[in-house]
């Protein structure tokens, strides 16, 4: 090791040590309070206490509005929309997203707008309005840019739209892209596999669909997502039916019915 190199290393160490000694900037009490409400809401949401989550996100949002913390306003509005969507209040969810997307006064980060547009696309898709969903997915992609973390989610939404439009090839195209973009996000990876399985079924390839749905099922079981497991089992039943294996199809339907009966979200 040369003398010069040693000196550089020493200097780097000093800089690193100085960085460790950095004192955090003090944050306002209201900002901390908003963050606390947000965290408690996250906790409530994870516990399935949606009403409580709505209240707490609402409180966080009020504080963010009061101090005009733009990122916080976007985050908590999106969270409120998400909780409303999950608890079946799609109209309220859409209203919240529209507030964010049509706000002329505040300038939100493109990432937050992309997220709002994705949620809007999902809601439109849920309402069987595939055309509007495609428009919002396009807007989301524009805000998102080529390498943003939402690109995998957007690809899955586009695959879902293609399926709704009975376009198996497009669905396969987008779900392939989603799978490639979501290697480290198990939830979206499973979504992509499930969408691929549906596309394969649409294209009369039940053998492939079987394999893909099984892979999705494994991931969903590891994540513990009852609704997704239910969907996977129904897909597996369909694939077996197409293969003429009625007995196995029946078994999968029975398993799916048991999960639906447990009705845990």
């Amino acid at each position: 090791m040369s003398h010069r190199c040693s000196v550089w290393m020493l200097l780097s160490s000093v800089v690193l040590l100085a960085a460790c000694g950095h004192v955090q900037e003090p944050r306002s009490v209201r900002l901390v309070q908003a963050a606390e409400f947000n965290q408690r809401a996250q906790h409530a949401f994870r516990q399935g206490q949606y009403q409580r989550a709505v209240t707490l996100y609402g409180q966080a949002l009020q504080l963010d509005i009061a101090i005009e913390y733009v990122d916080g306003i976007a985050i908590n509005t999106l969270n409120l929309a998400k909780v409303n969507q999950v608890s079946g209040k799609t109209a309220q969810a859409e209203q919240l997203l529209d507030q964010l997307l049509n706000d002329q006064a505040l300038h939100y980060a493109p990432m937050h707008l992309a997220e709002a547009a994705v949620q809007k696309a999902l809601l439109r898709l849920q309402e069987k309005d595939a055309v509007a969903a495609a428009i919002w997915a396009g807007k989301a992609a524009d805000w998102c840019g080529p390498d943003c973390k939402l690109s995998g989610v957007i690809a899955n939404v586009r695959a879902g739209i293609a399926l709704r439009m009975n376009d198996g090839e497009q669905a396969l195209f987008w779900s392939d892209r989603a799978l490639a973009a979501n290697r480290d996000v198990p939830l979206e990876q499973a979504n992509a596999l499930r969408l691929q399985a549906s596309a394969r079924l649409m294209m009369n390839a039940p053998g492939d669909a079987l394999r893909l749905a099984q892979a999705a099922l494994n991931i969903d079981k590891s994540l513990g997502l009852p609704e997704k497991i239910h969907q996977d089992l129904l897909l597996l039943a369909q694939a077996h039916e197409r293969l003429g294996q009625d007995e196995q199809a029946g078994q999968f339907r029975q398993r799916a019915a048991r999960i639906a009966a447990a009705s845990v979200k």
């Binding site: 949401f45 999902l122 899955n156």
Partner: peptide, 19 residues
């Protein structure tokens, strides 16, 4: 960790009525 406001993850899948 500094408490930051966090976003709920988006789930990019809408279940069809009959898969």
């Amino acid at each position: 960790p500094k408490i930051e406001e966090q976003m709920l993850p988006v789930d990019g899948y809408v279940a069809p009525e009959k898969p």
